[in-house]
Simulated scan of single mutants.
Amino acid sequence: MPKPTLDAIDTRIIAALQADGRLSNHQLAERIGLSPSPCLRRVKRLEREGYIESYRAVLQRDRVGLGFTAFVTVKIEGHADLAADALQDAIVAMPEVVACHMVSGDSDYLLEVVVPDRESYQAFLVGKLLDLPIIKEVRSNIAIQPLKTAAPLPLGHLA
């Protein structure tokens, strides 16, 4: 993986925007010590080059009725075929799956599933996930209490 080519100002920009994506260009420029025009040019370049993927609001899950989170490991039969690709596409398309990682170890995928309650999770598990082909095994770990979610990425290595 190539090393990012970000200078100290770029790093300050992305750190500030991770902390508060609602900063105006003027506020951001003041915070990082640039005038507004070069600050905006840098932000646009960072967006164009894919360092900044998007901007969004981080919602409080309980407040919007999504109080049940499960971390689900999935083991599949076969890996290097079209069925595995179709399975990945199906999982990524499920709105209940807010994160999906291909992993090594005892399972093949780790999913973070967010739904309103236990009954909704059961309906998701039985009606959607277990209905997919080539799934060999599913194990669920139910979140008891979130301690850290949607945290900014650590950028210390860029300094």
Rank of each mutant, 00 (worst) to 15 (best):
R63T: 09
A93F: 04
I52D: 02
E112F: 05
M94S: 06
R31I: 06
T5Q: 12
R118M: 00
G65V: 07
A19T: 09
Y51I: 13
L28V: 04
D62C: 02
A84W: 08
A57H: 07
A143S: 12
K148W: 12
K136G: 07
R42E: 03
A80M: 12
K75T: 10
R63L: 12
F124I: 03
V97C: 03
A19G: 13
R118W: 01
V72Q: 02
E137I: 06
E30M: 12
V114R: 05
R63Q: 14
D131I: 08
F68N: 00
A29R: 02
Y51D: 05
P38N: 10
G65D: 06
I9P: 06
I91V: 10
K148L: 15
L130R: 15
F124D: 02
A57R: 13
H101V: 04
I144H: 04
D81P: 05
A123D: 07
Q88S: 10
E137P: 08
D81G: 15
Q122S: 12
T11I: 13
L34H: 00
E77I: 05
L28C: 01
D7R: 05
H157A: 15
P36G: 09
A93V: 04
V115E: 00
A29G: 02
K136N: 13
I13Q: 02
I9K: 10
G65R: 06
L82G: 08
D108P: 01
